[in-house]
Amino acid sequence: MYREMRRTHGPVVPVALPGDVPAWLVIGYREMYQVTSDPVLYPRDSGLWNQWPHLPADWPLLPMVGQRQPSVYYTVGAEHRRHLTMLESALDGVSQLELRRHTEELADQLIDGFCHRGDAELIADYARPLPVLVLARILGLPDADGRPLLEAITALADGGADALEAFGWFSARMRRLVEEKRAAPGADIASRMLAYPEPFTDEEYTLDLQALAAAGNLTTADWIGNSLRLMLTDDRFASSLGGGRHSVPQAMNEVLWEDTPTQILAGRWAARDTTLADVRIRAGDLLLLGLAGANMDPQVHVADGATDGFRNGNSAHFSFSHGEFQCPFQAQEIAEVIARGGIEVLLDRLPDIDLSVAEATLSRRPSAFQGGMAELPVRFSPAPPLGDAR
């Protein structure tokens, strides 16, 4: 698809969102760098969008595109940096050792639920619930809220008919978390946000918590699922399924280049009329960041042949975006600890795990934004649950 887009349109592609809403999809590596490196010309300010008068109130992608809000995701300039500094301060308090302990404990609990069967569907049974359960703990939510949170965020990303209803539940739960932590603070991200010396409104806290929960959940789940798919279907990683761990980081990095969890990110809006790769962009036009397309740009990345291209250790991909609005480094570290820990625990517990269906039958979730697997059925030798023994 991306090869055909490049042949027909080049690195900046005219696309239509549901309802024939026009936008530009940036799939060139150099053009992606140009857009993400210039927050003045291409700010993340949805208030600039020239299509607002034409959108129905129930447009399904509203939660993904968003309206102008006082959150880290949609503010610009000094106001964006104010939110970002507060969030980075709260994320700094996450202990890597504690995060790894939470990941291993919750991974064991999930594996205990299916290890005795000898078969599992790794996306629904493992890759999807693990990150949200870990994130719920470090955000300050009880374990019981993990599953409902997962369902709401998945509905948002898929952009279906239930997206707006899910967004309402999600927003209400984050507002309630702010109230709970103001009354009874703990050793968690939400409490550290509230304790930050510069004051924010409850709406700002709520929106920033929503940004953390949504951005950190599905992306990490898809990172786990896509990495496991690669390791189960590519002979280069077969040795790691015998319990060795040396290939896990390599598989995870390759996925960020060639099968990135976030395929398309919305977005940036042109602050004025401009030109990008000889394409005329009007003030207020929406630019969708085609992270997957840019990562696979043949001008900078060799995917096959005699070399592994950027697979081996190079992290100059766009999977965490780039520039002023990229995923905070602390959040990237949290995602990596959860993903790597989850994969390693699974391979330790079930060393002979193997795909139970033909690779060609595997499918993706119906989302233009997220590139995760819909299912990953596997088989393995049945093993007893660990319970509290680990």
Rank of each mutant, 00 (worst) to 15 (best):
L212N: 07
Y196Q: 04
S227P: 08
S191W: 10
S191C: 11
T201C: 02
D162F: 00
P199L: 01
D222G: 00
R173G: 05
G159C: 03
A187G: 00
Y196E: 10
G160P: 09
A215M: 09
L164M: 08
S227C: 07
A172H: 10
F167G: 12
T220L: 06
R182N: 02
S227I: 00
G225T: 07
M174P: 00
V178G: 06
E179S: 13
E203R: 12
A190F: 12
S227Y: 08
P197M: 04
S191M: 12
K181D: 03
W169A: 13
Q210R: 13
T220S: 15
D162H: 13
W223M: 15
N226R: 11
L207G: 04
A187Q: 15
A163Q: 01
L194T: 08
G168P: 00
Q210P: 02
A213Q: 11
E179T: 14
E198L: 14
T201P: 04
G160T: 01
A214I: 05
D202A: 05
Y196W: 09
S191G: 05
A163M: 09
M174Y: 08
A211I: 13
P199I: 03
A187R: 12
R176K: 10
N217H: 14
A215I: 13
Y205S: 03
F200D: 03
A213Y: 13
Y205N: 08
A195R: 12
A183P: 03
N226G: 06
F170N: 10
F170M: 13
A172D: 09
G186F: 09
A211G: 09
E204P: 07
A195G: 07
A172F: 09
A221C: 04
P185K: 14
A195E: 14
I224S: 06
I189K: 14
T206N: 13
E198R: 15
L209Q: 03
A214W: 00
R176S: 13
A211H: 06
S191T: 06
W223E: 06
N226P: 05
Q210H: 01
R192T: 06
N226Q: 11
K181N: 02
L209F: 05
D222C: 03
E198Q: 15
I224P: 05
G186V: 01
T219A: 15
A183R: 12
N217P: 02
P199K: 09
A163W: 02
E165S: 10
A190E: 12
N217F: 10
S227M: 08
L209T: 02
G160D: 04
D202N: 07
A214Y: 06
E179F: 02
A166Q: 05
T220V: 14
